[in-house]
Design a protein around this nucleic acid. Structure first.
Lengths: 208, 208
DNA sequence: AGGGTTATGGCAGAAACTGACATCACGGGG
DNA sequence: CCCCGTGATGTCAGTTTCTGCCATAACCCT
């Protein structure tokens, strides 16, 4: 099943990571990446949909892992199940990528609005997938969407803490902390904090 | 303060909304939009940074309103304050846009991956702004990020319910419901749901 | 009326993508 | 051994997005 020189997508990924880190994302063209990988620009676009995607194909595996964990999970409260799902994703990510590479990649993504945008899109797709899984387990759609969104927000907080720290705490450990912080945050919030302002809502706004 | 023909940005916004809705986003070029507005393509890019942005400049006002509300808010738990902030944004959005236009715009955004991506980016920027405000109030950065992410996720759930429904319930009312659902969701979750799986974490993953 | 400021138009060009067609490597059948 | 189908790649032309540069036209103030 070998080809000319094997693993063209892998070579493209490596070339992109190198060049984007060296020169910056905006200063690197797709032609540059393809040339470094020993391929043509046209071939790049046969493997990746656009210039950004070469850095994000791992998110497919992440989403797959989380959905699989959700499918295998026992019964339980929707948010708890969702958090267990993203925890499974966190374990995969930590094992497959490691702290150092994750840190470098996070720095790279943070350096470009285009890349940040794509990362947010991947997180949103992940939340959608989690919500669909929860709904498939019998959860009401609105509740599923909210639980998925909260679980992914928790994951993102943990991921930020992990890549921003020295790696002394693993990603799963950071997720533990974030989940605990979530419980504390919500416990300290009056049940219907929003209602009081909402009563004078529209009027108060229009009076400005 | 009038110009040639006044309010070029407004004409561009209207033209874009019309054309994108009629033909679809991908099938419309920036030149089409500019021509419909009686302007040149070059002028379009003087008013909006890119093809997507013409549909999203309202998010600046939304972010401004939320940040202002946070700055004016009294002391309180961080998540509660964040939810009050997004509630202020919800009131503005409901008053300034209205259900019908919000529904049409939501349909349009959902029709294109590019537009969904930009919307997610705007929500992420909003979360960043909320987190900075909370941090400025003395909240620990990690807690601020999580609270902001959860508040924005709650807002997104409410917004989806609002634009997906018949408008019988207002956006602020949907936000009330979502905030209540959030409290219920978290209350039903064991404090450290993630910890148990995490103990067998990396090992369990690598054994696959 | 004249000068400064600002919005706009026109033009050229880089870079991101896409479709159509040719080409090359490999594997299998005659 | 040759030929031929399949799939990955290369080449080329073209569209679209977006940017820099310079010219022009309208407005504002004196």
């Amino acid at each position: 099943m070998g080809r000319w020189a094997s693993d063209a997508p892998g070579r493209l990924r490596a070339a992109a990571l190198e060049l984007f880190s060296e020169r910056g994302y905006d200063e690197t063209t797709v032609a540059d990446v393809a040339t470094r990988a020993g391929l043509s620009e046209r071939t790049y676009f046969r493997h990746f949909a656009d210039k950004r995607e070469v850095l994000f194909d791992g998110s497919r595996a992440l989403e797959g892992e989380i959905v699989a964990a959700l499918a295998a999970a026992g019964p339980g409260p929707s948010l708890e199940v969702a958090l267990e799902g993203v925890a499974a994703g966190a374990r995969l990510l930590e094992a497959a990528v490691g702290h150092e590479r994750a840190r470098l990649r996070a720095r790279l993504v943070a350096s470009s609005d285009e890349l940040r945008e794509r990362e947010q899109m991947k997180m949103a797709e992940l939340a959608d997938a989690v919500a669909r899984s929860l709904a498939g387990r019998g959860c009401a759609p609105a509740e599923a969407g909210l639980a998925a969104g909260v679980a992914v927000a928790t994951f993102q907080a943990a991921f930020a803490a992990w890549t921003g720290g020295d790696g002394g705490a693993g990603l799963v450990e950071e997720l533990d902390r974030a989940a605990g912080a979530l419980a504390t945050l919500v416990a300290g919030t009056r049940a219907h904090a929003v209602r009081a302002p909402s009563a004078r809502g529209a009027l108060g706004t229009m009076a400005r």
